[in-house]
């Protein structure tokens, strides 16, 4: 680490390091819930999760919470995930793979376009 030499540098540096703790701040943020029950994991939820983290990293997205939940009871559509954007209905996607999840990140999480093809259902939140 090189020294921070001015107030401007400090302000810029803070934006970068904010990433480090953003997972610990609540409220008003997009949340992605990956279903990680035994069935989900067996169906490849782990790869889906990794692909998603990778894509978020690559695109330098901040302010999104990635979390996980157990089996939703619709196991034959695993791997599944939900995207919850504040003020929007909760969108549930199913039958995912790595390719699909990368597109969800770009279309839905970044651009706000629901990827209708893989939607299992929507819930008012």
């Amino acid at each position: 680490m090189k020294k921070i030499k001015s107030v401007n540098e400090l302000v810029k540096f803070k934006e970068i390091v904010l990433e480090k703790i953003k997972e610990r701040q609540y409220g008003g943020k997009t949340t992605i819930v990956v279903r990680m029950g035994t069935c989900g994991i067996a169906a490849g939820a782990r790869d889906v999760m990794m692909a998603m983290i990778d894509e978020m990293d690559k695109r330098n997205i901040s302010g999104v919470i990635i979390t996980q939940a157990g089996c939703a009871g619709i196991c034959d559509h695993e791997p599944m995930l939900e995207v919850i954007k504040p003020g929007n209905p909760q969108v549930i996607y199913g039958d995912l793979d790595e390719e699909k999840v990368r597109r969800i990140v770009v279309d839905h999480v970044i651009n706000g376009q629901v990827v209708e093809d893989w939607v299992l259902g929507q819930k008012a939140s």
């Binding site: 107030v7 400090l10 302000v11 540096f13 803070k14 390091v17 990433e19 480090k20 703790i21 610990r24």
Partner: peptide, 25 residues
Amino acid sequence: GFINPEDIEEYIANEGYFALAKVLS
């Protein structure tokens, strides 16, 4: 209890050293 005390960057992320910057500038 919220940040890692051994990581100055977590402190900065929480507006750490901003007060010093404000005072000095």
